[in-house]
């Protein structure tokens, strides 16, 4: 029963990881920008939601504010930080360092405006109830699954059906093709950032209610997103999402056998196994760039 219980909380964690990881994978796949500040987007969205609920706004309004903040922040970074560096043939690591600077800035801004203490939203949704003997499930579990499924279905439809979606998928592979279609690579890159950042919002909002937030909350989510994008296969959204789910489950299940301090490391063991034995990931095509 313990394993079943852990599986349940692993799926809940994993569903939220899946969304954030898919956001990173979408941005990285389309633009090849190593958006290390994706975790900062997550933190900002979470805090925006907390801010809204402290103002007394309702859940949907709070979610909308979080969405606006996340998308705005993503677009701002793309235009003000990444694009200027890329114009200079910016090295991979130059972008990494710049993004890391952004992470530090965001963290200190949050500390200055919200304090360093832990903040959380109190809601009956996160209270677990015994649904089977020994198995406790909170309503937020179903919510996480429903939200994740809805988002993925609509994202899939968008990418497969719309011109912009197809353009996004083509962006990394064949920029010339884009021009032929009359699509602007710059606009698509902004779109990738807007969509990718939006994908961090559900995880952040539900995270504010389940685990709570602290100014450094984005770091872990960021590392999981990175690992998931490799395990899933770079550029594959489906892969990143599935890998995010997998990493969430592994992280939680490992507690049944080992000290909890190993739970984060366990995710990275999975990562190594993939890099060594299946570097193309779950769905990736090729290793080469």
């Amino acid at each position: 029963m313990l394993v079943l219980q852990l599986l349940v909380s692993g799926i809940e964690t994993g569903a939220l990881y899946a969304l954030t990881a898919a956001g990173f994978a979408l941005i990285f796949g389309a633009t090849r920008i190593f958006h290390f500040a994706h975790g900062a987007t997550y933190a900002l969205a979470g805090y925006a939601f907390v801010f809204a609920s402290r103002l007394g706004l309702t859940w949907p309004l709070g979610g909308l504010l979080a969405l606006l903040v996340a998308v705005g922040f993503g677009l701002f970074l793309e235009a003000a930080v990444y694009r200027p560096i890329q114009r200079h043939h910016g090295a991979f690591f130059t972008i990494f360092v710049a993004a890391f600077g952004v992470v530090i800035v965001v963290q200190s801004l949050i500390e200055l405006s919200f304090g360093r203490a832990f903040v959380a939203i109190s809601t009956p949704l996160t209270r677990a109830h015994e649904i089977l003997p020994g198995l406790y499930i909170a309503r937020v579990f179903w919510l996480a699954i429903v939200v994740a499924s809805l988002v993925f279905v609509s994202l899939g439809a968008f990418l497969a059906r719309t011109r912009a979606g197809i353009g996004l998928r083509a962006l990394s592979e064949n920029p010339d093709l884009l021009r032929a279609f009359g699509l602007s690579a710059r606009r698509l890159s902004a779109l990738a950032f807007a969509l990718g950042s939006a994908l961090a919002v559900p995880g952040a909002v539900l995270g504010a209610a389940t685990t709570g937030l602290s100014p450094a909350v984005g770091a872990h989510v960021m590392l999981i997103s990175l690992a998931a994008s490799v395990v899933g296969g770079i550029g594959s959204l489906r892969g990143a999402a599935l890998a995010g789910l997998l990493l969430g489950i592994v992280e939680t299940l490992v507690v049944a056998f080992l000290d909890t301090q190993w739970s984060e490391a366990a995710g990275f063991v999975v990562l190594f196994v993939f890099i060594l034995f299946r570097p193309s990931g779950l769905f990736g095509a090729a290793v080469a760039r």
Partner: peptide, 29 residues
């Protein structure tokens, strides 16, 4: 930051009480 797994394990043992020793923000979590 994640303690739901520990909670699940502790629940199966049904102790009389749970003692936690941590600092600052983590205690609230």
């Amino acid at each position: 930051q994640q303690f739901s797994a520990i909670a699940a394990r502790i629940r199966t043992l049904s102790p009389d009480a749970v003692y936690f020793a941590s600092y600052g923000a983590q205690q609230a979590q």
